[in-house]
Design a binder for these strands. Structure first.
Lengths: 173, 173
DNA sequence: AAATAATACGTGACAAGTCATATATTTTCT
DNA sequence: AGAAAATATATGACTTGTCACGTATTATTT
């Protein structure tokens, strides 16, 4: 029975190793680790949530934006912002007002308090990016980002197209 | 005012571009796209959820496993499995029984029905991986996985350590 | 101008994931 | 052996994210 247990342990280890090269199965863990580290940094930098930080950052960098713009910049679904923003308004970080020119749109703008929260968090988050730069060179970052670009392109090809034939993705070029 | 709008559009575009090189802010979108594509593939391959698919795969490859083993292989929190498994048992995919040797552990085992669900999904999911291989060479996959390894190492360094000084991560080597 | 289509946003329902805490069982220490 | 520490699992509360659908507003067709 020892051998049975041992072989099982080996099975587990080998399965874990083989999965190391499976990009798809790596992403959840990498992303989860990133989110956790973000949360920890933000905890030390004023207590913003990840969505709040991203939004304040975008508003501080690009000025007043519509919900749609924010979602596009963050490559996120508008519903995520749509739900987060009223809470941020309640906290005094942003104002939201209907666009006079296009009554469908909501213009989101940083308040002084939002700017202050951003100013508190920004240097801490900048240190995080600086720390990453000690682990990856500029060239490597560009290569890494290039891989992510290509992966993202692949991931946006509908499953049906990929299954239809291995030649399918040629169409997207 | 046209200029104002236009400059804003440029701001947005430039912000989006600059964020392209921010690995941290790329991860949510890439992961989300991967999960969505997974879901679509699984939809076409019998209707498993992502967690179910991962679990059936691990059990089919490595034999009966404890919840802890499953979580370790998937690099996920055990609570995720702990919550998903009773539902999978209800669906007839797995059995769960307390380990006689260690009463704390639960041994999860594939049923015939679970095996059948795996056999239905597996070839479809294999095609997905094959399709990826047409976009990334073996060498590139290894490079990509290497980047992910290094990033994951970085992400597991506590925020306090990274903030304490740029030299901190040397300790982990 | 009226009908139709497109767009922006809100919202309900769900999936995946985290953390903290509780409980039962084993292991380890003395 | 008994006390203390470690481990495996369950569970509540929360965040991030998706999709589908509804509603209001604007743009386009005819």
């Amino acid at each position: 029975m020892t051998t049975k247990i041992k072989s099982n342990a080996n099975q587990i280890r080998s399965r874990k190793e083989r999965e190391g090269l499976n990009i798809f199965s790596r992403l959840p863990a990498v992303y989860a680790a990133s989110r956790t580290q973000s949360r920890n940094f933000l905890e030390l930098a004023g207590g913003l949530s990840v969505v709040e930080w991203r939004t304040l950052w975008d508003l501080a960098e690009a000025g007043p934006l519509t919900i749609r713009d924010l979602a596009a910049i963050q490559r996120a679904d508008h519903s995520l912002l749509s739900r987060a923003l009223p809470e941020m308004r309640k906290k005094g970080y942003v104002t939201m007002q209907r666009d006079a020119r296009d009554g469908r749109q909501t213009i989101v703008e940083l308040t002084e308090q939002g700017r202050a929260a951003y100013d508190t968090a920004a240097p801490v988050m900048a240190k995080r990016r600086a720390a990453l730069k000690e682990v990856f060179s500029d060239t490597e970052i560009r290569e890494f980002a290039g891989f992510l670009d290509r992966l993202e392109d692949f991931l946006r090809v509908p499953a049906e197209d990929l299954l239809a034939g291995q030649m399918a993705q040629e169409d997207t070029q």
